[in-house]
């Protein structure tokens, strides 16, 4: 299988260096080649399993339970100004 590593990396928002792409390409092809054996299994009429116990998503009442902890929650951000997250300019 031929995998466009740079494209998959861009989908993942990871900028690979050329060296990384050269190394990861064959490794990825190898892994995908291995998992391709799944196609041997007859799964006609078999339902997919997304959750081991087939549990329904529980709902809860929409009640505010937390207090305002903005400073603590933002403390780990790389860049904060006046309580706002700062990112490079998006709109000209």
């Amino acid at each position: 299988m031929d995998i466009d590593v740079k494209k998959v990396a861009m989908l993942s928002r990871i900028r690979l260096t050329d060296d990384e792409a050269t190394e990861l390409g064959p490794q990825l092809a190898n892994i995908i080649g291995y998992v391709e054996q799944l196609s041997e299994v007859n799964t006609d009429g078999v339902e997919p399993t997304a959750h081991p116990h087939d549990a329904a998503m529980p709902l809860r009442a929409n009640i505010v339970t937390n207090v305002n902890r903005r400073e603590e929650l933002q403390a780990s951000s790389p860049k904060i100004e006046s309580g706002l997250y700062v990112v490079p300019k998006v709109i000209e």
């Binding site: 990396a9 993942s12 990871i14 990861l24 490794q27 990825l28 892994i31 995908i32 998992v35």
Partner: peptide
């Protein structure tokens, strides 16, 4: 790290 990237890329590919 490289193993994490490998897994993210594998997952992005199989979901694409």
């Amino acid at each position: 790290g490289s193993e994490v990237k490998r897994r993210i890329l594998t997952g992005a590919f199989t979901l694409s």
